[in-house]
Simulated assay, not measured.
Amino acid sequence: MPITLGPNRYGKAETRVVALRRGTDRHELADLNVSIALSGELADTHLTGDNAAVLPTDTQKNTVFAFARKYGIDQPESFGLRLAEHFVATQPAITHARVEITDYAWQRVGQTGHSFARGSQEVRTCVVHHDDQATHVLSGVTDLVLLNSTNSEFWGYPKDEYTTLPETTDRILATAVTATWRHATLDVDWAESHAAARHNLVDAFTETYSYSLQQTLYAMGWRVLDKQPELCEVRMALPNKHHFLVDLEPFGLDNPGEVFFAADRPYGLIEGTVLRDDAPTAGPAWE
């Protein structure tokens, strides 16, 4: 039976870099988690142990720190693009670079210009893919927790002998959004585009009268693409953060939809993609 080496990549995962800009009394703070994965003509190191084409992962880590100092960190997308292009351009054996970045938000506190507090659990994300064929940039957000206390129903679903869930015409709809959107162009104001996408996701969630979380997912993706021509595809994962009405009758109390148990697991998980009909092929960008 023939055995061959399949697709492979390697790199340095989760380099945590914090960069300060101290040019004025008002400091700027960037806090990133950077993961690099390189692929190309790397068969020899797997098959024979020859490391002639293997740029050490320690070097990759050092490059992150050096670029943070040399070029600074403005937006995670531009920093990721710079890193990805560098590794493909400088390493003959490397044909594809993937750079994944998580951007942790800090908020200013006080009046000093140099004091910060960590923001919400929501984090900004981006993934950059670069080779000699194409460059793809995906931006996104994770753990964007949203809740509608009404204007959500769920009924009309199939029922069998194992169904116990009652239908409802008024429920809490809550989720922790993981959303990723693909850019159709690299001529983008990354900060402005990200802020707009987040705004459009939230607006669609709040304004949609929902009969299912699937319907809400599509409405959110549609709103982003309708408002932002620089984007061509949106992917989302929406866990249904269930809130169950608590039975208070044993305590002689009614419960007219006011007291709930927030269950963390198990949970429904709704995933989907919304894209333009003419969206260019993403290739490996979603891997």
Rank of each mutant, 00 (worst) to 15 (best):
T4D: 15
A13R: 10
E14H: 08
T15W: 06
A30E: 02
N33G: 13
D44Q: 07
T48K: 05
T48G: 04
G49Q: 12
A52I: 09
Q60N: 11
G72K: 02
Q75D: 13
Q91P: 00
A93Y: 07
I101E: 00
T102R: 08
T102W: 01
T102G: 14
G110Q: 08
G110E: 10
S115V: 04
S115K: 09
R118F: 06
Q121S: 12
C126H: 14
C126W: 10
V127Q: 10
V127F: 04
H130D: 09
D131C: 04
G140W: 00
G140N: 02
L144K: 10
V145T: 10
N148Q: 15
T150S: 13
N151H: 02
F154M: 08
G156F: 08
G156C: 07
Y157N: 08
D160L: 06
T163H: 14
P166T: 04
T169N: 09
R171W: 04
R171T: 15
L173V: 10
A174G: 12
A174P: 11
T180E: 11
T180H: 12
H183G: 10
E192Y: 13
A195L: 11
A196Q: 03
L201C: 13
T208E: 07
Y211P: 10
Q214E: 11
Q214K: 06
M220W: 15
L225C: 13
K227F: 01
C232R: 05
M236C: 00
A237M: 15
L248I: 02
P250K: 02
G252N: 04
L253F: 12
D254G: 09
L269D: 13
E271P: 00
V274Y: 00
V274A: 01
R276W: 01
R276S: 02
D278V: 13
A279V: 12
